[in-house]
Amino acid sequence: MTRRRAERIALNTTGVLVFLVMIFPVYWMVSTAFKPGIDVQTFTPKWFPHPATLSNFTDAIHRPYFWQDVKNSVFVVCVVVALSAVLSFLAALALARFRFYGRKAFIVLIIAVQMVPLNALIIPLYIAFSNAPGGTQVNKLTGVVVAYLTFVLPFCIWTLRGFVMGIPQELEEAALVDGCSRFGAFVRILLPLVAPGLVATSIFAFIQAWNEYIIAYVFLSSPEKQTLTVWLANFTTNRGTAWGSLMAGATLTALPVVAFFVIVHRKIAFGLTAGGVKG
């Protein structure tokens, strides 16, 4: 009995320690964001943001181009998510509900294509956009939207396919027997059932597009065109880094992503490795 107890205490202590080590950077970001400047730049760290202040946040928000860059991020992300949700839903339907010639090849292609490093694609994308027939697409948000589709779309198709496969085909067949058309069965039966999966996939696409840095960094050179991840570099100048404001800006950038992520992470962990356990 006592041995059991000792074991439990040891396990719980390890658990708490691991939790503290993992969470500390996140805590340190938020707590620095709420500290007045004098408590940030101190040789002996202050562990708690007391007295707390919002001045870092007001400073971050009033930095040039904050709201403009928020708008850019939201615009890019919304267009990418809307386009990829529609396209990938159709493609996922084909992959999950039909047996057709070339299906396996397409599946292999979709998985393999996700392995191509984004860094390798940046060079040809940049050249292609600067040579685009309708004038250069470099330093335009539309160019960034197209570039983001390269990594968001294959991911969405693959994940949604898993969700569609999780819904029993008998439900649609029942609708067909009752006189519904194939298309009607998709829209009236399948779509409502797969909606949670569609939302989860869209949110994950949102997160990926929101977090993207390197394409935005290369393609968007003027500050009024940039997205939030690039905007974060504004806090470092030749005179040093405004750590308090940077942490406030970082917190603001991370906030929407964290909020959404907490909602969908279960579904996505399933989607990424669906079927992997059964072996």
């Binding site: 993992m22 969470i23 996140v26 977090n211 840095y213 970082a250 991370a254 964290v258």
Partner: peptide, 9 residues
């Protein structure tokens, strides 16, 4: 929470 934190952040 750690998983959700953007790389740039």
């Amino acid at each position: 929470l750690v998983w959700a934190t953007p790389v740039v952040v």
